[in-house]
Design a binder for these strands. Sequence first.
DNA 1: CAAAAAATTGATTCATTAGTCAATAATCAA
DNA 2: TTGATTATTGACTAATGAATCAATTTTTTG
Lengths: 194, 194
Amino acid sequence: MPRTKIKDIRKNEIIEAAIAEIGRTGSTDITVAKIADVAGVSSGLAHHYFGSKEQILISAMRRILTIFGTDVRKGLAQAKTPEQRLEAIIISCFSSQNFRPGITNAWLSFYVQAQYSKETERLLHIYYHRLQSNLKSNLKPLVGTRAEEVAVALASLIDGLYIRLSFKGGNLSPDDATEIALGYLRQSLSATSA
Amino acid sequence: MPRTKIKDIRKNEIIEAAIAEIGRTGSTDITVAKIADVAGVSSGLAHHYFGSKEQILISAMRRILTIFGTDVRKGLAQAKTPEQRLEAIIISCFSSQNFRPGITNAWLSFYVQAQYSKETERLLHIYYHRLQSNLKSNLKPLVGTRAEEVAVALASLIDGLYIRLSFKGGNLSPDDATEIALGYLRQSLSATSA
DNA sequence: CAAAAAATTGATTCATTAGTCAATAATCAA
DNA sequence: TTGATTATTGACTAATGAATCAATTTTTTG
């Protein structure tokens, strides 16, 4: 029989509420009271379980990174060739899981948060490194020495598309973004070295 | 004889201080008192001239956009062909003027600010539109119907590179960024339509 | 110089919010 | 049931920071 899990259920609800609020407002400039309210608990409880607002936000970020990682891994599992794997990574970036409304906003906020939170910077760095080496290792057999450069460009392009997606004014759909990124990939694979 | 300009000098100092602080901390989560302090005036004066903190930040953003616009125009003036013009735009994006330490951080913050400030969103939209149409019109004679797509991709790539530059962890230099963006451009120009 | 206008201050007000804590409610174990 | 453990609350504290404003200094002008 499973031991008391209410604690974990609550923590999860609070994390989800935090993600929802970051997504809704587009920043980490939200109150613990509001997060608690959305989660349906008191602010005291949120503090009780997480200790501080920063810890709540870091937990939210960790959750988003986990979702992202799971999604990518799932896509990679079915891909056989390096080319398929690269496509799978790109598709995952703009897939539904990573694309719940507001997730793009959350990413943007995390980049800002990374400027003053060591832990956020650390987490973001891990994400960077993973994506980068994932892309690079699959690009190596296809473009050789250009792998590093193409990997940086592709990762940057994905980040840039995320920004544009988070911005209401730039009417871009996730599908458009996927196509653009895939287009860049194909173009890079067929380009001859200068 | 020029009329009293102290007012304008002060306003300018306050705007510069705001940019410096946004750059230093990497967010718009700064105090009016701190901005005033950096500018060497009292917080009261900052409020007196700008009315609110939001107005100070909006003015700071407007200033950055102006600097950017001037830089681009300067680059364009010397370019003759569409290709040269495209290169000039890219180079301007990562040029020294736009690259005072912290400006990248400021951009990032403005994207977040645009989520809740109508005025910031409006300004960002103008910037978007200008860059986009600038790129597109020069791409048109070179890549025809692909102009729209390549313009979006290039603009996104530039934004993404900005993010990476603002992030300490990703050791990328402005020169690297310029090279990557120029590389993408050349590649796009030489690619044959699928 | 004297009066008017402009520049500037900083103490004060008011609102917000992170974090604490002591008390209460619910659940579980024996 | 009863005692212990766990979950939960919401009032409270303390800090912060935006905005105001009356008072003061500086500058301009006639």
